[in-house]
Amino acid sequence: MSNWIEVGTVNDIPKLGARVVKSMRGDIAVFRTADDEIFAIVDSCPHSGGPLSQGIVHGKAVACPLHNWNIDLETGDVLDPDHGCARVIPVSSKDGIVRIYVEAEATGTHG
């Protein structure tokens, strides 16, 4: 079974905006730049957990809506002068269909 899941089309994501995808491991923000590039990162600012999906996209970065930290959408790195990193999620956009890679969920019991 593939861990790539279809989350919609490029046009489902607003330009310079985001769409939130729910997963068992937390929300994932899928972003679209002005040039129709697609990126995905965990929807939580490393500073204080703000919803990055509600931030302003500029270039290949997003500004957190709580304290204006800027996160690079390609690497997840927080841009200077602040420091930190958000987890990047692999994303694919082919023929207008957007897919993200989600880690397999643990099954069974451990003991």
Rank of each mutant, 00 (worst) to 15 (best):
S2G: 13
S2Y: 11
S2R: 12
S2V: 11
S2Q: 12
N3G: 15
N3F: 14
N3W: 15
W4Q: 12
E6V: 13
V7Q: 14
V7P: 10
V7K: 10
G8L: 08
V10F: 10
V10H: 07
V10I: 14
V10K: 06
D12Y: 15
D12V: 11
K15A: 11
G17N: 04
G17E: 08
A18N: 00
A18D: 02
R19C: 15
R19Y: 11
R19H: 13
V20G: 09
V20Q: 10
K22I: 09
S23M: 03
M24L: 15
R25F: 15
R25S: 15
G26A: 04
G26Q: 11
D27W: 02
I28T: 08
V30W: 02
V30G: 03
F31W: 12
R32W: 03
A34Y: 05
A34G: 03
A34R: 03
D35C: 00
D36V: 13
E37P: 01
I38M: 13
I38G: 02
I38N: 03
F39Q: 02
F39L: 01
A40E: 02
I41T: 00
V42L: 04
S44L: 05
S44W: 02
C45Y: 07
P46D: 00
P46E: 01
H47P: 04
G49N: 01
G49R: 01
G50P: 05
G50N: 03
G50S: 10
P51T: 10
L52G: 00
L52I: 06
L52R: 03
S53K: 01
Q54W: 09
G55V: 00
I56Q: 13
V57S: 01
V57N: 00
H58N: 08
G59L: 09
A61H: 06
A61E: 13
V62R: 06
V62C: 05
V62H: 07
A63M: 10
C64Q: 03
C64V: 07
P65S: 02
P65Y: 03
H67Q: 00
H67P: 00
N68A: 08
N68L: 11
N70T: 10
N70F: 11
I71P: 08
I71C: 06
L73R: 01
L73S: 01
E74G: 06
E74V: 07
T75R: 07
T75Y: 05
D77A: 14
L79P: 01
D80S: 11
D80C: 08
D80Q: 06
P81M: 04
P81W: 09
P81I: 02
D82K: 08
D82Y: 08
D82R: 04
H83A: 15
G84H: 05
A86P: 09
A86I: 08
R87Q: 14
R87M: 12
R87H: 15
V88H: 12
V88T: 09
V88E: 06
V88L: 08
I89Q: 05
I89H: 02
P90R: 08
V91T: 10
K94A: 13
D95T: 10
D95P: 05
G96P: 08
G96E: 10
G96D: 06
I97C: 09
I97Q: 12
V98H: 01
R99C: 14
R99M: 14
R99N: 15
I100Y: 04
I100Q: 09
Y101W: 12
Y101A: 14
V102E: 13
E103K: 12
E103W: 12
A104I: 04
A106W: 10
A106T: 11
T107E: 10
G108P: 12
H110P: 03
H110Y: 14
G111F: 15
